[in-house]
Amino acid sequence: MDILTHFNYWAAIALASIGLYAVVARHNLIKKLIGLSLFQTAVFLLFITIGKVTGGTAPILDSAYSLYSNPLPHVLILTAIVVSVSTLAVGLALAILIKREYGTVEEDEIQAEDSAAGPGPA
């Protein structure tokens, strides 16, 4: 029974570690951004899990129901999702600019080009 009561937390942790692995191990900047969005979703999952009440219903008040899930995490995550897409767009825009300047979005090639060019802006 312990597995069922903590399964959601562990799923969130699994998603967070997948995202962390992608951010650290992959050299492609787009893949790093994908990993970051996985990490974000893991945080969303943790919040919504904390807000869930067994047997509750969506927090839209009606006389037919008496038990509701916690509305506060829903508010926080609702805004966070829209913020996440706009910040992801900023990251993608930076990746596009890096592609234009360096001709690649692979991190090791960017570093190689930087060290070949020497210190300071070209």
Partner: peptide, 14 residues
């Protein structure tokens, strides 16, 4: 998980 507003946003955004 009862978060219908979040589901709405996630479906449209994500």
């Amino acid at each position: 998980l009862d978060a219908v507003d979040v589901a709405f946003t996630e479906a449209a955004v994500g």
